[in-house]
Design a protein around this nucleic acid. Structure first.
Lengths: 185, 185
DNA sequence: TTCCTGATAAACAGGTCTGTTTACATATAT
DNA sequence: ATATATGTAAACAGACCTGTTTATCAGGAA
């Protein structure tokens, strides 16, 4: 059932999970921050894990929309593939960049059949789909393989940028992406 | 102070952190598994976080030693750079592969100035150093930049392999690595 | 012997966590 | 006006968490 309280709860949860991680963020903290009663949470969700999944779905949609908005400014699909990494750089440069909530979810909920892990993987698959879409439009060789390699660079850039606090990882990923795209041209 | 009990405790902790993550692994679980008394832990370490750092250091040394052992089988430094990704594939294929404990550490302890995060980053830097070493020996153009790009592929392969349960990520990373190495040749 | 070190066992303290229960409030739609 | 749905407040249960305290034990060295 949709509800403004529910939406606000999910948004607040997504922000706190993003910042502090999942195990480290207690329900009471989320409720206090959102200004929502505990029973409201448990009326809308069976458990904390269900709230986490909902937060990942909302945040996943938001990320993809943001990525498309940035990358689609480029006209040519080949250019869009590169523009993805410009968007990443912008993200890494933002004050308080703290890593990727989906990667954190996959890490904290290791088993691949865990619902939280699967929700995180679904978001990464959406990124892959966007890459495949453009690799195909650009009529590049073996677009599936290319998209997979670009996804590796996407994930690698996020991981390295966070591990070392090094936003420059985005630029290096872009350079590597240019090379593998050229190789498929 | 070194001690067999201490070593066993650290080894046990490393294995459990690797499997279940850090917040999800309680001290009591580690102690029960190791067959060690709680006071022994707190005689050797001030806190759980200190144990985590020690476990990451030990596991980090083990990973680098394993990686070198695999990759150094290749004669040419250029071949070694590629052999890294064969080693990754071997790792991803092992039963019960569950992601990278250092990536998990960086994710669970987000702030880059957190001691646990820093211990994880130190291990990644050691991987970078090994790549730089070989990129330099191979007399490739801009070895520093190349090593950073290879590290991106290394991290990306680990992330994707875990997120999707897809060991094939190693092969794709190797192909991308071959292209960027060729480009620097 | 006596002393010291390292380890053990078990209880305990004080927090925090998820999730439940219960009683009450508000608003809308029939 | 009244039933239904939605939300609130606060206490509670029960588990789990890190870390401390206390008493005890075994072995080697002075």
């Amino acid at each position: 059932m949709p509800s403004p309280k529910r939406d606000h709860l999910v948004d607040t949860a997504a922000a706190l999970f993003q910042r502090d991680g999942f195990h480290a963020t207690g329900i009471d903290t989320i409720l206090a921050q959102a200004g929502v009663a505990k029973m409201t949470l448990y009326n809308h969700f069976k458990s904390k894990d269900e709230l986490i999944v909902a937060a990942l779905e909302v945040e996943g949609a938001r990320y993809i929309a943001w990525l498309r908005a940035r990358a689609d400014q480029a006209e040519e699909p080949g250019e869009r593939l590169l523009a993805i990494f410009d968007a990443l750089e912008e993200w890494f440069e933002t004050e308080g960049f703290n890593g990727c909530v989906f990667m954190k979810a996959a890490c904290e909920y290791g088993p691949v059949n865990n619902p939280v892990h699967m929700a995180a993987a679904a978001q990464k698959r959406a990124v892959f789909d966007y890459m495949l879409e453009n690799a195909t439009s650009a009529r590049l060789r073996d677009p599936r393989n290319l998209a997979q390699q670009l996804l590796l660079l996407h994930e690698g850039a996020i991981a390295v940028a966070h591990e070392f606090g090094a936003p420059i990882a985005a630029r290096q990923a872009k350079r590597a992406a240019a090379v593998v795209i050229e190789d498929a041209g």
